[in-house]
Computed example of a mutant assay.
Amino acid sequence: MRHGKRLLQVFMLALLTLAFAVQAQAANPDYFYKNLVDINYVKPLVKVPNPEGVKLIDSRPYQGKYIQGYIPTAISLPDSEFEKKAAELLPKDKNVTLVFYCEGPECKLSHNSARKAEKLGYKNVKVYPGGYPEWVKAGNYPAIGVENVKEMLTKGETFLLVDSRPLVKFLEGSIPSAVSIPDSGFEKKTGLLPVDKSTQLVFFCGGYECPLSHSSARKAMALGYSNVKVCEAGEPAWAKLYGASGGGLKVQTGGVEGAISVEQFKKILAEKPDSIQLIDVRDADEFAAGHSPSAVNIPVNELEKKLPGMKFDKPVVFVCATGSRSGEAYYMTRDLRKDVKDVFYLEATTKWSKDGTCTITDNKKK
């Protein structure tokens, strides 16, 4: 009798499980891809540098949707251009997790792209059905294309454009109408922000590898600003598309003040890395993802409080991902430690690997 009752319980549980599965399946349209993720899965992916082994992909049209607003760090691969651009834009490693999204649950583009990616042999493909609408509705800041910034300026829209790079970078050239609020000095310059916290704020810095604009955007939102955006492509993309511009004065330095020769830096790393005091001013997670074996990590936002007690017995060279934070570290050191004479920074874009090797691109030759 007891055994029969137990079998009945197991049978009823199986029926309930099946019913829930059918109900869940019925809740999703037929075109939905099989592997779905929610916003809590996506949030940790939105960081600079991007987490290893995962790629966030916007399947919407580039002009009509992507540049008008997208989930930060996502690349644009419109479903209509998937076959033409997939080989160029998708990672070669088929084990990398691909997360597609588009314009919400009613949008089929991300689901179509996910199936195409699976046919190409990608093994970890997912779709975030909530997409861009859910992302912004949840109160997260979006990113916009530099083309959209240009359009907003041309139309005379009301917004504050903020350059989050160090002042020296701003003075060398910025996007027209931008104000300089370096991320490291954000708290000291909040008076430059508008009183009306519904005013649109657009932050930018040194390109996709630069986290400063994202950091400033989060700080602005913490202050209660409700219409915050980031132009991830930043000043480099503006200069490439529309030419170098006068966001501020053009500093005549006879070269880049304080910048070590890229070729000399490469030679030192290869032959005598111990001859310099190499300080990597990127954030700790960036440093952990790859760095020079001879470098020490002091994030630029921690440098000011540490400088007074630091010992310098070799020429100092600051490095980061784009030259923005390392330049800021250079000028900070010049201001706070006037006794340190041999201090330099690397004016270059760097991509460090876990094995300590690095690809270095001179910003003057980009």
Rank of each mutant, 00 (worst) to 15 (best):
E172R: 08
F318N: 06
V42N: 01
N50L: 12
F170G: 03
L45D: 04
Q264T: 11
S110E: 08
K188S: 14
E347W: 13
I75Q: 01
G130E: 01
S226W: 06
K123F: 14
Q9P: 01
C358P: 02
I276D: 03
S110G: 11
S292A: 12
A138G: 02
G255L: 04
Y62G: 00
L346M: 11
T357N: 03
K85Q: 14
G248Q: 08
V340C: 14
A24F: 06
P236L: 09
E103L: 06
Y331V: 03
K43E: 09
L15P: 00
Y242W: 03
D163W: 10
F318K: 05
G173S: 11
L89M: 13
V251L: 13
D280V: 08
N148T: 09
L167M: 10
L171C: 00
P72G: 10
N112Y: 07
G243S: 12
D30V: 13
P166G: 12
G131Y: 00
I360F: 12
A138S: 14
V42G: 03
G145N: 02
V162G: 05
L223T: 09
V340N: 12
L212Q: 15
Y330E: 04
K137Y: 02
P72F: 04
M12A: 15
T253A: 08
L346Q: 07
L167F: 07
S275A: 12
L18M: 03
E151H: 03
G130W: 07
T359Y: 00
P49Q: 10
F186K: 09
F203H: 10
K34S: 15
N95Q: 12
S294I: 02
M310T: 13
P61Q: 05
G207S: 11
E88K: 15
D163H: 05
E328H: 14
K272T: 15
L346H: 10
V340L: 12
C358T: 07
E106V: 04
N148I: 00
K314I: 08
E134Y: 00
K119S: 10
D335Y: 07
N28T: 10
K305Q: 15
D313P: 04
F312D: 13
R337Y: 14
P61F: 00
E304Q: 15
R165F: 06
T199N: 12
M310P: 13
Q25P: 01
A217T: 04
P61D: 08
D339T: 13
S113N: 08
V96C: 02
V54W: 09
C210I: 09
L161H: 09
E209V: 09
Y141N: 06
V127P: 05
C231L: 11
V46C: 12
V162Q: 06
A114F: 08
S110H: 05
T350A: 11
N40K: 06
L109S: 04
I279T: 07
V228C: 07
